[in-house]
Simulated scan of single mutants.
Amino acid sequence: MNTPTQHPYDQLTPDRVLDAVESVGFISDARIMALNSYENRVYQVGIEESDPLIAKFYRPERWSKEQILEEHQFSLDLKAMELPVVAPSTDEHGNTLHEFEGFLFALFPRQGGHAPELDNLDNLLILGRTLGRMHKLGSSQAFQQRPEINLQRYGIDNVEFLLENDFIP
């Protein structure tokens, strides 16, 4: 159990990461490397006699299972439309989200990439088309779990919270 000063990620040790990956049927070769991530914890985990996997551990109490699964489904739908996304891996039962000792996590194939050359007009055209296709799929059905990005939620509510709680000296 976490104390008030402990962050839940304090419990996410390298051994726990490896145990979580192995809990869904993979055998790790014990190689682990932390990757950059703003909010979640993401690791490259070596797998015996196979390519490494990317394990993403979702920040506890940030997103619900339903929100994460909705996002996973959107990624899978984008992939089915042959858009260049790295969707979460599915297990033999079609599951993309796993739980281990209080942590929700997903596994992804390792996929390299590179930044586009933004001064190349052909690249900008391709980016625009890709974004258009993503938005078309996203607007084809209403998201039920994803919080809406709007002025009230991301502007007014936050200003009121700061003013009411004396966050700003």
Rank of each mutant, 00 (worst) to 15 (best):
F143T: 03
A115L: 14
G46V: 10
E99P: 00
E70D: 02
D122Y: 11
I156T: 15
V42P: 07
F143C: 06
Y154C: 11
K136E: 14
L78P: 00
S89H: 07
A55V: 08
Q145W: 07
N120V: 12
T90H: 00
A106P: 03
R59I: 02
Y154A: 09
E71H: 09
G46Q: 08
D119V: 13
P88Q: 08
L97Y: 09
L163W: 09
R110M: 15
A55G: 07
I68F: 02
L76T: 02
F143H: 04
Q111F: 10
K136M: 10
R146D: 03
D119E: 14
Y38M: 11
A87Q: 02
D157C: 05
D157V: 14
L162G: 10
Q144D: 06
E99Q: 11
S140T: 08
V45K: 08
L83Y: 02
V159L: 15
L69W: 01
L162S: 13
H93W: 01
R110T: 09
Y154F: 14
L107F: 08
H72K: 04
R129G: 06
V159C: 06
F74K: 01
E49Y: 12
E99F: 02
A87N: 00
F161I: 10
L162K: 09
Q44I: 08
Y38S: 15
L163A: 13
L124E: 04
D77L: 10
Y38Q: 12
L104T: 08
K65N: 13
H135A: 10
D119F: 15
S139I: 09
I54S: 03
F161D: 13
F74I: 05
P88W: 04
R146W: 03
L127P: 02
L107I: 11
Y154K: 07
P116E: 02
V42G: 03
D51F: 12
R62A: 05
R62Q: 03
A80R: 01
N40L: 09
Q111K: 13
G113C: 14
N158P: 03
Q141E: 08
H98P: 00
P52Q: 14
P84S: 03
E49R: 14
H93V: 01
F105E: 01
E49N: 15
Y58R: 04
A106I: 06
L162F: 06
N158H: 14
A142K: 11
E92R: 05
A142Y: 03
L127R: 05
T90M: 11
H135N: 07
Y38R: 13
E71D: 13
N40Q: 09
H72C: 03
L104G: 03
G138N: 13
W63A: 11
P60H: 10
K65D: 11
L125C: 02
L83T: 07
F161V: 06
E49H: 14
R133L: 14
S64P: 00
F100V: 07
Y58D: 01
E70L: 05
M134Y: 04
N36T: 10
E164C: 07
G94F: 00
Y38C: 06
N40H: 15
N40S: 12
I149N: 07
N150Y: 07
L151I: 13
V42A: 10
L53I: 13
E117A: 12
W63F: 15
I47A: 12
